[in-house]
């Protein structure tokens, strides 16, 4: 940023701060709420008047009132999201490899279909799915959610990976073969290290999509057998009719957000894939 004048630099700093405030304020606000007591909720203050772990105890500690609602749903969310991510990424990797490397009929068709599927509004298929799942016994099961999640994660995975694979200098594979590698060694030693960041990025995107879903989660489940966290949150109730579950919901939201933020921070460097630079003249 050496070429910037002081004025420009100040401008950028201001913009950055505004954007940060704008996007972080809700998160911080929820974090603060999660530490408020029942009384503190209505204090109208941003910071909790008195700090408490009570809300976290409600959802996590044995005997907490929302614990039997939250913990199974957390397990469901993690399991279902992970499985749909793995399946989507594995399938998308094969698909994108073929799209990037081979010339075959129907290549365009696959890509446009994938795009069409991903822009199809979720709400319009959720009712038919509800009926179908009920009649074939997938309602309120893990596969009953994994399958629709794949329809969300697969297209975007195929598109991201295909775009990524197209940039890989495939000549490296040939170079490795000339250097004495078997075709499989060439793939593993020259291509996989370059493809890894792309696959990883795709996995994270796919995981977020599954993790954040609400519509399928609420419509296709009825018990804690398969209900994911976003859906479960809406079933939280206060200790009595007159208590708001806001504190517990905030705590739950923080519990499901923090791991994601940590993952992104840890793998930030890998997600930014500057790795392919310098393979070829440039």
């Amino acid at each position: 940023m050496g070429g910037m004048s002081t004025k420009q630099r100040i401008g950028w700093v201001v913009i950055t701060v505004v954007v940060l405030l704008w996007s972080l304020f809700p998160v911080v606000s929820i974090l603060m709420t999660s530490f408020k007591t029942q009384a503190g909720l209505f204090s109208g203050k941003f910071l909790p008047p008195e700090w408490t772990w009570e809300n976290y105890a409600t959802i996590l500690a044995p005997g907490g009132s929302a614990q039997d609602l939250f913990l199974p749903s957390l397990r469901n969310s993690i399991g279902i999201s992970l499985i749909s991510t793995v399946v989507a990424v594995v399938l998308a990797t094969f698909c994108a490899y073929a799209i990037a490397r081979l010339d075959f009929r129907g290549k365009k068709l696959i890509l446009t279909t994938a795009l069409a599927v991903s822009v199809f509004p979720v709400v319009s298929i959720v009712t038919p799915l509800f009926n179908l799942w009920r009649s074939i016994g997938l309602y309120d099961t893990w596969p009953g959610l994994i399958i629709p999640y794949l329809s969300l994660t697969l297209p975007i995975s195929i598109w991201t990976l295909a775009a990524f694979f197209r940039q890989i200098p495939w000549e490296l594979e040939q170079a490795a073969q000339v250097d004495g590698a078997t075709p499989f060694q060439a793939f593993r030693k020259a291509v996989v290290p370059l493809a890894a960041p792309g696959v990883f990025t795709t996995a994270i995107i796919a995981f977020f999509i599954a993790w954040n879903d609400f519509v399928y989660g609420i419509s296709l489940t009825s018990t804690s057998a398969a209900r994911p966290v976003p859906a479960a949150l809406s079933f939280f109730t206060g200790a009595s009719q007159f208590e708001e579950p806001t504190g517990a919901i905030s705590a739950a939201a923080i519990v499901v957000t923090v791991p994601i933020v940590i993952v992104v921070l840890i793998f930030q460097r890998r997600i930014v894939s500057g790795l392919t630079q310098g393979a070829v003249k440039g």
Partner: peptide, 20 residues
């Protein structure tokens, strides 16, 4: 014979270095 069994060394037009 596969390339690896021919024991030849090649310098590619765009070098094809392993970036990682």
């Amino acid at each position: 014979l596969a390339p690896r069994d021919r024991d030849l060394a090649m310098v590619f037009q765009n070098y094809a270095l392993y970036p990682h």
